[in-house]
Amino acid sequence: MENRPSQAGPQEERLEDSQHHQQSGLRNNARSPLPDCRPAQPETSPQLSRSVVVTVSDPRGLHLRSGRDVVRLASQFQARITAANLSRNTHAIDLKSIIQLMQLQARQGHDLQLAATGPDAVAAIEALSSLF
């Protein structure tokens, strides 16, 4: 892919962690009225959510070959990853599907919102951002 040095880097607009602690809270309530005195431990599969807006820099837009690289990379992560073309006001599509990605009809300069949810969401968004 034309992975040129990012002159137009990702705009990390919404990069808030939204770790869901609801589950563990419920568990504590259900099992024991006592405060949980176990040391804080990482959840086995934390459901992290990350989102970023990237701008398509390729003059030819997001074409089939570059789309292939996006899908190929996205498929390496467990996280559910979606993308929406904010410039066309599309709904979010599954970034692991080439046919859905092509439906974004993303041209140069279009803003795409990438969102990932899953244990490797942070790494997924970081890696994918570098492709635009």
Binding site: R88, T90, S97, I98, I99, Q100, M102, Q103, Q105
Partner: peptide, 13 residues
């Protein structure tokens, strides 16, 4: 399954 999904994917925005 993904190939057949292309049947219902519109080309034009």
């Amino acid at each position: 399954a993904v190939a057949e999904a292309a049947l219902s994917a519109p080309k034009l925005p």
